[in-house]
């Protein structure tokens, strides 16, 4: 393999999926060549940016590109989504994290919420290719926030959709759909879930009584993503693990979700300050409060 220095990472295409969600296709040949489903990368727009971890949605080894989908939830993500095709990131590092082990389970249920749907996609696809029966459960607040529906349908044997307001699929939450599967007697061999922490916590609580192996992709605050700072530590079965190197996918039944939810609020006040600064300088409201 040849290793070449890459100074910048160009956005070769960008598609706005909704007001707050954009898909970026980035030229990063090294990452594209060695990425596996479940890996993540860390993005920095410029020298002053934070390091933002995001799970890979796709990678194209031939064209040397990677795909990420980003939702504006703070200043840094909003700034990234304001970038245009042709702009470039100063840094994209990776592939990072431990990839998901792709094997034949039998029936695999993927549960994605919000942008987690995008991050679940490559994993579900790989499971399908490995000969599993794949049932995808997609949850969103409303129809316009539901992403990758068509793509997911293509790689799944069955897709169940739930929205908070009933504007698409069934009105309700993803756990209702999981319960439905159990009730109808579906034999579930494994569940993989990516989405908001509360959602994953309840997915985990739902599958626990059935002892279904369940894996959740965790998103603690990260800094280096290389196992150096310990900021991403999470409690798994009473022991600390580093999500950036040991994860981000962990046995959901062993995760201390409550501690993680609290920790993720650690920099809230700073985030607010960043956002108001951002809105002031961009003379616009991004409605992130």
């Amino acid at each position: 393999m040849e290793y070449k220095p890459q100074e910048r990472y160009k956005i070769v295409d960008k598609i706005d999926i909704s007001d707050v969600i954009s898909k970026h296709i980035i030229y990063a040949p090294f990452i594209a060549s060695s990425a596996k489903p479940g890996n993540f990368v860390i993005l920095m727009k410029d020298e002053k940016s934070e390091r933002i971890p995001v799970t890979l949605v796709d990678f194209d080894r031939v064209n040397g590109t990677i795909t990420v989908i980003i939702q504006s939830i703070g200043k840094s993500t909003a700034e990234i989504n304001l970038m245009k095709k042709g702009d470039s990131f100063l840094n994209v590092s990776g592939p990072l994290g431990t990839p998901v082990e792709i094997k034949k389970w039998g029936t695999v249920v993927g549960v994605g919420g919000g942008v987690g749907i995008a991050e679940l996609y490559p994993i579900a696809k790989a499971f399908k290719e490995a000969g599993n029966k794949v049932i995808s459960i997609l949850g969103a607040r409303s129809k316009d926030l539901l992403i990758l529906e068509d793509e997911t349908i293509k790689i799944s044997d069955e897709v169940l959709i739930t929205t908070d307001d009933g504007s698409s699929g069934k009105k309700g939450v993803v756990t209702d759909a999981i319960k439905e599967l159990y009730t109808r007697g579906e034999k579930i061999d494994a569940v993989f879930t990516i989405g908001p922490l509360v959602m994953m916590k309840f997915v985990s609580l739902t599958t626990k009584p059935y002892n279904t192996p369940t894996f959740a992709s965790l998103n603690p605050i990260m800094l280096d993503g290389t196992g150096m700072c310990g900021g991403c530590r999470i409690e798994i079965d009473g022991q600390f693990k580093f999500a950036c190197v040991d994860g981000p996918m962990f046995d959901a039944h062993k995760v201390n979700f409550d501690s993680l939810m609290k920790r993720n609020n650690g920099f809230k006040d700073f985030e607010k300050q960043s956002i108001s600064e951002f809105e002031r300088t961009h003379k616009c409201k991004i409605g992130l409060h």
Partner: peptide, 27 residues
């Protein structure tokens, strides 16, 4: 919250220039 390793603390300050927040984004 508020428990740092020196690695995290120093990396936020020195590498990410957290001491220049909010001009630099890392708090």
């Amino acid at each position: 919250i508020g428990v740092y390793s020196s690695n995290e603390f120093l990396t936020r300050v020195n590498l990410m220039k957290g001491y220049k927040f909010p001009d630099y984004d890392t708090p």
